[in-house]
């Protein structure tokens, strides 16, 4: 379970304002909102990449905020994460990128590594891409390799920052279906940030909507669809007229 209590963070201006949120174990939670709402910063606070000015993050009963670097490493072993920019290591091949988290976890059997890499590449429809370098991939292919790397360890908590950005509609739906399937198989706790609201709502259990650093809505997918909150209503239904 992930619990966020009164989280606030400012850089030049406030990006998170008193955000509180609970994501139960095994829940696929969708986090949506317009650009610069603070969604990515919130994800980074959860893994201790950004230190909040106020508030606390608790992961499976352990408070993440205030931990030193070594203790944070222990907590981070629970996580898998896909970054908005994919964050593929550009000096490693596609296969090495996907195998990297496994090697760091101590998997040394080359046959097992190759099998698990091939399995992930099959899942994201990139069979045979093991030897390619990230610089030779399209944006969508990089995204899919990022998804493969984020899911290869079957972590108990997985954070996806825009997993389908830049992908065509068919591939986007495939990625969302894959992530839902993975989540059901592993019962992982997943938080997924996406602007593709229509597809996101087809796979999530709960949805949170952020706007200007505040969490304006937190509820089930059905509650989000029927919400009368003007910002939520406009965003969920893609209306042109409204407060956004």
């Amino acid at each position: 379970m992930i619990e966020v209590h009164g989280l606030s963070k400012s850089f030049a201006e406030p990006v998170l304002r008193d955000v509180s949120l609970t994501v139960p174990r095994g829940c696929l939670f969708g986090l949506v909102g317009p650009g610069a709402a603070g969604k990515s910063v919130l994800l980074k606070c959860l893994v201790g990449l950004v230190t909040p000015d106020r508030g606390a993050v608790t992961v499976a009963g352990e408070t993440v905020t205030g931990l030193d670097e070594l203790s944070l490493q222990r907590v981070r072993r629970r996580f898998g994460m896909l970054f908005q920019n994919n964050a593929l290591f550009d000096y490693l091949t596609v296969g090495e990128n996907i195998a990297f988290p496994l090697r760091r976890m101590g998997v040394t059997d080359e046959a097992e590594l190759a099998e698990r890499v091939a399995d992930r590449l099959r899942a994201v429809s990139l069979v045979g891409f093991e030897a390619r370098m990230p610089s030779g991939l399209s944006g969508g292919q990089k995204k899919r390799v990022g998804v493969a790397r984020a899911t290869v360890t079957r972590a108990e908590i997985v954070l996806y920052d825009e997993p389908a950005a830049g992908l065509d509609p068919v591939t986007s739906q495939k990625i969302f279906d894959l992530l839902r399937r993975e989540q059901r198989e592993t019962n992982a706790t997943v938080i997924m940030v996406s602007s593709d609201i229509d597809r996101l709502l087809t796979v999530t259990d709960r949805v949170g909507l952020m706007h200007r650093g505040e969490l304006l809505f937190d509820g089930t997918t059905d509650e989000a669809r029927s919400s009368l909150h003007p910002v939520v209503k406009q965003f969920i239904h893609g209306e042109v007229e409204g407060p956004l």
């Binding site: 944070l72 490493q73 996580f79 964050a87 550009d90 760091r104």
Partner: peptide
């Protein structure tokens, strides 16, 4: 710098690598 702006350094941290 390229690794920093493309979040590769953050990715290392989330993989529990210092």
């Amino acid at each position: 710098a390229t690794m920093t702006v493309t979040e590769q350094v953050d990715a290392l941290s989330t993989l529990a690598i210092d």
